[in-house]
Design a protein around this nucleic acid. Sequence first.
DNA 1: GCTATCTAATTGCATATGCAAATAGCAAGC
DNA 2: GCTTGCTATTTGCATATGCAATTAGATAGC
Lengths: 249, 249
Amino acid sequence: MSDSGLDAVKLDGAGPVYDQIRRAIRDLVLNGTWTPGTSVPPEHALMERLGASRMTVHRALVQLAREGLITRRRRSGTVVASPPASHAMLDILSIPDEVRQLGQDYAFEILSRRDGKPAAEVAALFELKRSEPIVHLVTRHLSSGQPHVLEERVIHLATVPAAADEPFETMPAGDWLLQHSLWSQAEHALSAVAAGAREAELLAIGRGEPCLLVERRTWNQSAPVTAVRLLYPGGRHRFVGRFGPYGQV
Amino acid sequence: MSDSGLDAVKLDGAGPVYDQIRRAIRDLVLNGTWTPGTSVPPEHALMERLGASRMTVHRALVQLAREGLITRRRRSGTVVASPPASHAMLDILSIPDEVRQLGQDYAFEILSRRDGKPAAEVAALFELKRSEPIVHLVTRHLSSGQPHVLEERVIHLATVPAAADEPFETMPAGDWLLQHSLWSQAEHALSAVAAGAREAELLAIGRGEPCLLVERRTWNQSAPVTAVRLLYPGGRHRFVGRFGPYGQV
DNA sequence: GCTATCTAATTGCATATGCAAATAGCAAGC
DNA sequence: GCTTGCTATTTGCATATGCAATTAGATAGC
């Protein structure tokens, strides 16, 4: 094995060559073989290794760069990009960042934690099998002392075993997961619900007041990583996005 | 002027040639000079007209195709694409389609209409100048007879003068606008609110029940087109989306 | 040590060329 | 009329080539 990651690039013979190259590199990035910051071999090296022309390699790399997976600079070369911190509208956002961007002080407290197989209600809420070991966390995030959002989360220990030994004292679970696990797909759902008695108390709002519920589930290559329900007091939060008729602007 | 739109393509000399071509064609599409279905001149024609090589023209067209602005087929040529009916998550969606996709019958009724300069509350709600003439519509959309969503909308007559003569009897205003106006940018915001007395009655829910409020404003080249507030009964609606760490999957 | 300069590595862009694949429209044959 | 096949048009892909722009790192000079 050479010291660069050159040998890891393998074509599968399906479809156009430039696209084989694109997918090969994309997969290395998405499955974590090449982590952010890793430098991608220069065009000449890939060209020789793969027996393609430089323009063909170039085309694959240009496209990956436009997709945001890599960044390229003349002379410095090509490196794997860091996933952007946030997306258009809704995403894996860091709640500490979210709060600080509003100019407020951030704090959080873990209200409860349970490790092991899920209780019946938790399994139902997150659509889990009762045999899967998880960490179940309830966290309250505070913005300058005021309740900001209530978070209920499960982390799949089969996929992220390190979570079992993590006390989540220095940072909330969402941020810890961003640093200590990979994800390749997420699904989120937005709805409006009324605050229950306990929720209202924890959020310092009236019972039955409208809240925005963000539910998000995350996978890495079909293995579930985490699922979370974020309950925002309705009056104080909006999610905003911009786009054009053919997609993001 | 030739019968094709060839003459309309003009480069601005700024940046790479392929990108000049790309932007030139993109602008013709976005500003409505080339409407969906219009056929784009073949690569050879553009190449001669612009004095660029075919590969350079090709690169611009390939990129536009990937962005979804045009569709290309061998031998048939290149045509301007229709904007996709819906986006990842939230967008200018057609409420009739939304209802029918759920397998329900669709109907709508206009609850009120007022043309002319906006009343004070309407102007405040939509952040309008009181001197701008608008159409103000309140519409209820029904799904198999049940209230589905409540829509309150203003249409800017300066931008869409035809709206003044349109009774909106055969289709709701949102769908009519999709067919009779252009838009280049939209902004939406999502929040949770409690139903007011009148809203609750119209949606057949209890007063104070949580609702999902979608607010959307649309522009065409900085001219405001329309603004709408859609109030969905919270319990019956969710907005769902999927994505990966680097963007849409 | 510090700075200015040079060199070479690397990506960016454009061209010219050739062939492959798809297919619209026409022509020929039945 | 219907089908079958041909042909020319158009896009898709890959290569080879050359030069431009950027800049990290080495070198030379002070």
